[in-house]
């Protein structure tokens, strides 16, 4: 069964939909750049919390921890730039580019669909439905386990960055000045930023698993869609 919006698209095309262009090029580019940035951030971030073994020799001969932190901050800037671009694309992109930022909690049909998807994941439904964009359960997860944590990590991350960049830096004025007093002190921000990293790691695990599983078991393409942009449907049944 197609959702209402997808039905409209089907009618507009005047034929059975086999493929829909979902993810436009900027969005796909953002997805992979973001994935790379998160990988670098999580790895370097873990090392910032638990540094690698001590380096031998003179201090001037090594800059290992400096490079680790540099990679973290550089990837953080890439993530922020990507995020700003992604928000911009939500305004100018297609319908699907806005899905990440929305949580239609007052839409009862949406909740019903989400419940259906939950049953599908609990092996209580025999046949999956077709979705062009995210299914409601995926949208729910994306918003709560990805969009909000990502925003939280940007805010706390640049608040911590502003401490090193010193008072007067843009990060300090924009983030450190209110984030650190809000948490009470810097160590709390570190701890929460660290927890946020684990939340995003958990999301990545679920995200990769769900994408591959859906690719195999559902009725539409998943992994290739984020490469080509086209959602392919495996059958003509509604």
């Amino acid at each position: 069964m197609l959702s209402a919006q997808d039905m409209q698209e089907a009618v507009a095309h005047g034929r059975q939909v086999r493929a829909v262009y979902v993810y436009e090029a900027p969005l796909r580019l953002w997805h992979w750049v973001n994935a790379l940035a998160i990988t670098v951030l999580a790895m370097t971030g873990y090392f910032i919390g638990s540094p690698p073994p001590s380096q031998p020799g003179e201090a001037s001969a090594s800059f290992l921890f400096g490079y680790i932190r540099f990679a973290h901050f550089a990837a953080g800037y890439v993530l922020l730039a990507g995020f700003i671009g992604r928000v911009y694309w939500a305004f100018v992109g297609n319908e699907h580019s806005r899905q990440l930022f929305k949580l239609p909690v007052f839409d009862s049909a949406w909740w019903k669909e989400a419940a259906f998807e939950l049953r599908w994941y609990l092996f209580l439904e025999r046949h999956p439905k077709k979705y062009v964009g995210h299914n409601p359960l995926a949208q729910f997860t994306m918003f709560l386990l990805f969009f909000l944590p990502l925003l939280f990590m940007i805010v706390t991350g640049f608040a911590l960055y502003g401490e090193g960049a010193q008072a007067g830096s843009w990060a300090s004025m924009l983030f450190t000045s209110w984030v650190v007093p809000m948490f009470g002190q810097s160590q709390d921000v570190h701890t929460w930023h660290h927890l946020g990293m684990w939340a995003i790691v958990v999301f990545v695990m679920v995200h990769v698993y769900a994408a591959i599983r859906e690719d195999i078991m559902s009725r539409q393409s998943m992994v290739s869609t984020m490469l080509s942009g086209w959602r392919m449907f495996k059958d003509d049944k509604p």
Partner: peptide, 29 residues
Amino acid sequence: ANADKIGGVAVGVVGAAVVAHAAVSAIKQ
């Protein structure tokens, strides 16, 4: 507990759940 312990447990639990879910999915499929 510290953030790494909490995160490690969360990743372990979710990882185990993913593996179990994948196994059941494979059988169903």
